[in-house]
Simulated scan of single mutants.
Amino acid sequence: MFYRPADGHGLPHSPFAAIVSPRPIGWISTRSSTGDNLAPYSFFNAVGYTPPQVMFAGDFRDSMANAMESGVFAVNVVAAEALEKMNATSARFARGTDEFAKTGVAKAECVAIDCPRVADAPATLECRVVKLVEILGPERILVGEVVGVHLRDDCLVGGRFDVTRYSPAARLGYHDYTIVRDVIELRRPKDPNPV
């Protein structure tokens, strides 16, 4: 099968998100004059290493509006045991609703920024807004610089952040998710012709 997205695919549901998978989930927490907010974004990833930077993309709704108002946001890693609560925070609550309180997610304060975070997340990235990028369609991309990192102590093993200690949840297509349980280490091959 081949299709041009502009012409439609003729399937019951678009396969695009299922093709680009698995994707990490950015569980974005923000604070604004209307209160605290927590929502998942399945278009999320790291985009820079020095300095560390991340991005999330979607409609310009509460999370992005709050981050643009405050200049900060936090990205909370979703562990397997938090999958149901993460999904509950994806409901379209009215602006100003505290999803932490509404869904029973434990809240803590960030350190480097004025923003809430998921208290028991395996890791949280505290971010300052770098840029809001307009792309085709109604979505936007928000890029942030990571200015603080929380690591849950039980996830540190031998000086490494060990994902097998919490099994990260990831987004597939449609209504599907996966849990990362198998980790395979591959070291880069050495250059056979060093200069």
Rank of each mutant, 00 (worst) to 15 (best):
M1Y: 11
P5C: 04
A6N: 14
H9P: 03
H9A: 02
F16D: 03
A17D: 10
A17L: 11
A17G: 09
A18S: 13
V20F: 15
W27S: 07
S29Y: 11
S33N: 03
D36W: 01
A39P: 06
N45P: 01
A46I: 10
T50S: 02
P51L: 11
P51S: 10
P52T: 07
V54C: 02
F60D: 14
R61T: 12
D62R: 10
G71P: 05
F73L: 01
V77Y: 03
V78R: 10
A88H: 10
A88D: 14
T89M: 12
A91V: 11
F93I: 05
F93S: 01
R95V: 15
T97P: 01
E99G: 04
E99S: 11
F100Q: 02
A101D: 15
A101F: 00
T103C: 15
V105Q: 03
I113M: 12
D114P: 01
C115S: 15
C115I: 03
C115H: 00
C115D: 08
P116I: 03
R117T: 11
R117M: 13
R117F: 07
V118Y: 11
D120A: 03
P122Y: 12
P122E: 07
A123M: 12
T124I: 14
T124M: 13
R128Q: 09
L132Y: 00
E134A: 15
R140A: 11
I141S: 03
E145K: 08
V147W: 03
V149I: 09
H150C: 14
L151Q: 12
D153G: 02
D154Y: 00
V157L: 09
G158L: 10
R160N: 11
F161T: 06
T164N: 13
R165D: 02
A169T: 13
A170V: 15
A170Y: 06
T178E: 07
I179C: 15
D182A: 15
D182L: 14
L186D: 01
L186E: 13
P189E: 09
D191V: 09
P192I: 02
N193A: 14
N193Y: 08
N193P: 01
V195H: 11
